[in-house]
Simulated scan of single mutants.
Amino acid sequence: MSRPFLKMNGLGNDFVVVETRSAPFEPTAEEVRAIANRETGVGCDQLIAIDRAEGADARVRFWNADGEEVGACGNGTRCVGWLLMQSSGKDEAVMETAAGRLVATRAGERLVSVDMGEPRLDWREIPLAEAHDTAALPVALYHHADLMAPPGCVSMGNPHVVFFVPEVAQAPVAEAGPAVERHPLFPQHVNVGFAEIKARDRIRLRVWERGAGLTRACGTGACAALVAAARRDLTGRHATLELDGGELFIEWRDDGHVIMTGPAAVDFTGELP
């Protein structure tokens, strides 16, 4: 049975979105990898399924390109939130995810804000393999002059480590990213951010995403970078994040919730074999 899909992107972070409320969808890791393959499949950073949910607009599931199911995807949640609001005509969409309940609201023409909830900052919640200060991790994860300052660790429903670097353009993203992603300190592996503080309200960020590699934008990574920077007083509690694919606005509100605002776009439709 073929199944229709939508190809969407948030700042170039791209997704194959499948509506699964009418028929069950339990892809194997091999099937996810085949769909995500940019040469022989549709090609995407993540596969997303929209399921029925009790007491919410939808239950949303995410798989990375390597086939692993993951808890959260910020840009993907924004895209799905936009789809749900378009179909309902409402200005809000409530989504159940493995990372908890997320609420998207309309913020303008094709602009969506998502309440990503509170960051998890305890070492057990990230998780780390052993107890450490997550604001400034006292562990050498990778030996490189730009990465000697201790990084910060944050979970936004998925684990992140954020290195603060003098210049993102010079940071060893492609070399350090895969090495740190699989460091034994991170039992579930980790998304690796490289953040350059340009001003109290502006951060340049590149992210090596676990299971997907270097990505043009990572929504949860942008949230994690702001939280990590604010915890160290490198920035205030809101900033514009400059990613390879464009800009996201992130606010860590006084109530502890992190709000991410950015665009959602539809690229094309098709059918999965």
Rank of each mutant, 00 (worst) to 15 (best):
residue 270 G to N: 09
residue 201 D to R: 03
residue 50 I to C: 03
residue 187 P to L: 07
residue 91 D to L: 07
residue 34 A to E: 11
residue 93 A to C: 09
residue 36 A to M: 06
residue 125 E to A: 15
residue 97 T to P: 08
residue 54 E to Q: 12
residue 43 G to C: 10
residue 8 M to C: 12
residue 241 L to H: 04
residue 58 A to C: 06
residue 158 N to A: 07
residue 113 S to L: 05
residue 11 L to A: 06
residue 120 R to M: 10
residue 36 A to L: 03
residue 11 L to M: 09
residue 246 G to P: 06
residue 170 Q to G: 13
residue 103 V to H: 02
residue 37 N to T: 01
residue 49 A to N: 04
residue 48 I to K: 01
residue 10 G to M: 04
residue 253 R to P: 01
residue 181 E to P: 09
residue 159 P to S: 00
residue 170 Q to M: 13
residue 243 L to W: 05
residue 166 P to S: 12
residue 53 A to V: 02
residue 168 V to N: 09
residue 40 T to W: 12
residue 139 V to M: 05
residue 13 N to P: 03
residue 240 T to H: 02
residue 245 G to T: 12
residue 222 A to G: 10
residue 214 L to V: 09
residue 135 A to W: 01
residue 240 T to F: 01
residue 267 D to L: 15
residue 12 G to M: 03
residue 263 P to I: 06
residue 248 L to H: 08
residue 232 R to G: 05
residue 100 G to N: 06
residue 233 D to H: 15
residue 37 N to G: 05
residue 270 G to P: 07
residue 265 A to H: 14
residue 267 D to F: 14
residue 270 G to V: 10
residue 40 T to M: 13
residue 260 M to C: 10
residue 162 V to K: 06
residue 69 E to N: 11
residue 84 L to R: 07
residue 61 R to Q: 11
residue 5 F to M: 03
residue 167 E to P: 03
residue 201 D to H: 12
residue 138 P to Q: 05
residue 82 W to Y: 15
residue 155 S to E: 00
residue 39 E to D: 13
residue 169 A to L: 09
residue 93 A to Q: 03
residue 110 R to Q: 15
residue 254 D to H: 09
residue 177 G to C: 05
residue 53 A to R: 05
residue 29 A to D: 13
residue 216 R to G: 05
residue 233 D to Y: 13
residue 30 E to V: 10
residue 37 N to A: 13
residue 157 G to R: 05
residue 17 V to A: 02
residue 175 E to M: 15
residue 85 M to L: 07
residue 7 K to R: 14
residue 197 I to Q: 08
residue 60 V to S: 02
residue 40 T to Q: 13
residue 130 E to K: 14
residue 87 S to C: 00
residue 149 A to I: 14
residue 193 G to D: 05
residue 198 K to T: 00
residue 48 I to Q: 01
residue 168 V to D: 15
residue 79 C to K: 14
residue 98 A to V: 00
residue 56 A to F: 03
residue 74 G to N: 08
residue 110 R to T: 10
residue 267 D to K: 08
residue 44 C to D: 10
residue 238 H to L: 00
residue 257 H to E: 13
residue 263 P to A: 10
residue 239 A to Q: 04
residue 216 R to Q: 15
residue 165 V to S: 13
residue 28 T to K: 04
residue 37 N to R: 11
residue 187 P to D: 10
residue 265 A to Y: 08
residue 208 W to H: 15
residue 190 V to N: 04
residue 188 Q to I: 00
residue 45 D to E: 09
residue 55 G to P: 08
residue 157 G to H: 08
residue 39 E to P: 01
residue 110 R to K: 14
residue 231 R to Q: 15
residue 114 V to F: 04
residue 70 V to A: 09
residue 116 M to W: 00
